[in-house]
Amino acid sequence: MSSIRKSKQVIKSSEITPESVYLNRRSVLQTIGTLSTGLAINLFVNDSINANENQLTFSPNNKYSTTESLNSYEDITTYNNFYEFGMQKSDPYNYGSQFEPKPWSVKVSGEANKTGVFDLDDLIDINALEERIYRLRCVEAWSMVIPWVGIPLASIIKKLQPKLNAKYVAFETVYRPKQMPGQRRPALDWPYIEGLTMQEAMHPLTIIAVGLYGKELLNQNGAPMRLVVPWKYGFKSIKSINKIHFQSKKPLTSWNISAPNEYGFLANVNPEVDHPRWSQARERRIGAGFFGTKQPTLMFNGYAEDVANLYSGISLRRNF
């Protein structure tokens, strides 16, 4: 069976959540609300952060982690886009519970020596898990800081031995309309598909996450395994992956099919290239507080030093 075994955790990320995160205005308001409404909110927060279930063992990766304040577990697990569960940002949290991420297998196909159906455990070395604290920048101009737990995608790809003509890796999200109510509506062309160049996929910043805040991923965040590519807009980081395909030509991607002039294949975070309908120059950091101002968006989401060389000589305006 392909479940990630429960075990004791080395460091509890929830314990290093900085005070500043909790001292924002919204929390103050919530505290007032809690005092007046009883324990409902308080119980929810404590429950979701302190539950000892599904803990993962991992080691922190400081080289690739930011020291910025983390978003709270509550924010990360109640506010995100996962259209498979609905188009509202609270939908993944509200309608994700029917989804069954265990057992899980992934079909690997295309230009590789090792193809076939793999259990989650075959692909992900549970003893090699790292924590990566990454910025996440959504194409909608909001952002978070998230402590992912996962392994470099490169380590999985090496195992699968892609052939020389495998220039791209394509990914697919599982299609289960019975468990994913959003898939019963034609919001996007289901199943959700994404892709990376082989160079991007092999980059040390690119990871497959299986957890966050030291615990297994919840359904709403893309359980049991998802991509995290921190220098690209969030929609590139495809969730609940059950197919990986190596190929020589550029893969199609869901958002590019949906609106080709708005969402490109590369989708690198770029403050200088606006979305046709809104500016990408600034972003709202979730949890910055009710009167927190927007902050400037950084080139490649602040990872330019590590990834800019992947795109030298390419017009990022044309290849948005």
């Binding site: 919204r26 506010y79 909001w142 709202r284």
Partner: peptide
């Protein structure tokens, strides 16, 4: 909701 009733305003209250 701004004062925390009915589940509050969520992670992005301004939005």
């Amino acid at each position: 909701k701004a004062f925390g009733f009915f589940g509050g305003l969520g992670a992005n209250p301004v939005e």
